[in-house]
Simulated assay, not measured.
Amino acid sequence: MRSAARGTSVGYSPLFGFYTFIVFGNTLSADGLLDKRFDYMLSNPPFGVEWKKIEALVRKEHTEQGYAGRFGPGLPRVSDGSLLFLLHLLSKMRPAVDGGSRIGIVLNSSPLFTGGAGSGESEIRRHVLENDLLEAIVALPTDMFYNTGIATYVWILSNRKPAHREGKVQLIDASHFWQKMRKSLGSKRKEMNEEHIALITRLFGDCTEASLALVLDGRGKEIDRRVLMPGDSPPVAPDDGTGRAKVRVVPISRIFRTQDFGYRTITVERPLRDEAGEILIGQKGKQKGKPQPDPKRRDTENVPLGEDIDAYFAREVLPHAPDAWIDESKTKVGYEIPFNRHFYVFEPPRPLDAIDADLARVTDRIKARIEGLTA
């Protein structure tokens, strides 16, 4: 190991066959690897870290350097700097013509959806998706880290996507695949074994959709499971004598177009009325002759990017508010990745007759035991 500069260590790793660069300092306030570009990058930044102490330096880089710096697309709220670390890694990508780069970064759920259209978080997601940099997001099981049990996600990004991935994003729910550790390490109580890792790796490598069939007995306990690839049929529920055994099929890998995560937030205005219920009309300026909007009745709607705004407005708004209109000057484009929503499977409640029958059986057992005690 030799010192290359103050606070910088450079060394060759014979195990991996490449040089390592370790720079002392704050990644966000001072780029210690300013002119470096990398083929592969892995990062596990702190979850939800506040960046108020370095806010002035980060905002200065954002304002003065724009896209020539690291934070051109936008800045997240000061209470969570996770997306700043993502932007830092993106700035270290090699140009695609030089071979490009691939990134793996572990984040919490906040960067997926925090911030509405036009916010810093949304603009960062917009930059990532509209430039087709996101390959996949993998949801990990909870309780995977020493100091927290929260849900975490691995984002995989690249500026050298293969042709079959262009314009697409794969979401993989790996939260079902874990085993208990023999001994907990702080909040870390679960781990993924080699079989779990191989399955998730294969789903990503094949860029395919898949489902998981969970075989449940009459008490709802899992007794078997099977991964279903496209075209596979789910197993048949066993006959355990209860009549309540079932097979629950849930998606574990889904593929979307990048624009599926985009939307436009439209501002819906309603007219201001006087005490007699008459619409107030503007008398001067740009509002002359136009109905005046009522700020108290103002609302917003999110329209998917792939849908026509006028058609959406006519279908979803006008039947309920015939006097409404859209203030087009306030329309904004936003992006979010509602991961859990895309993997939610509705389970209808049990029929009331079945619930009543169960309650009757339990009541009869309780009565029989009480009678046995008093006999």
Score class of each variant (00 low, 15 high):
211 S>Y: 01
344 Y>S: 00
352 L>W: 04
311 A>W: 03
344 Y>Q: 11
363 T>R: 14
331 T>L: 02
193 N>H: 14
24 F>K: 12
258 T>G: 05
366 I>V: 13
168 K>M: 13
68 A>H: 00
74 G>T: 04
93 M>C: 11
255 I>F: 13
362 V>N: 07
59 R>L: 11
340 N>C: 01
73 P>W: 02
265 T>D: 04
68 A>M: 02
348 P>Y: 07
125 R>H: 12
150 I>P: 04
87 L>R: 12
229 M>H: 15
72 G>Y: 04
83 L>G: 12
251 P>L: 12
263 Y>P: 01
300 T>F: 02
270 R>Y: 00
241 G>D: 10
201 T>Y: 14
142 T>D: 00
44 N>A: 09
312 Y>H: 15
335 Y>F: 14
189 R>S: 12
244 R>T: 15
191 E>H: 14
110 S>Y: 03
330 K>S: 06
219 R>V: 09
259 Q>V: 11
246 K>S: 13
60 K>P: 01
11 G>N: 09
19 Y>R: 09
276 A>S: 13
69 G>K: 08
90 L>M: 04
44 N>E: 07
151 A>F: 11
351 P>W: 02
181 M>V: 08
55 E>P: 00
306 G>W: 04
347 E>C: 05
108 N>P: 15
321 A>F: 14
80 D>E: 04
192 M>I: 12
194 E>I: 00
27 T>Q: 03
242 T>Y: 06
9 S>Y: 10
71 F>Y: 13
275 E>Y: 06
307 E>K: 04
194 E>W: 12
145 F>A: 10
154 V>A: 10
81 G>L: 08
365 R>Y: 08
140 L>F: 11
186 G>T: 08
197 I>F: 08
29 S>K: 09
139 A>M: 11
13 S>E: 05
97 V>P: 00
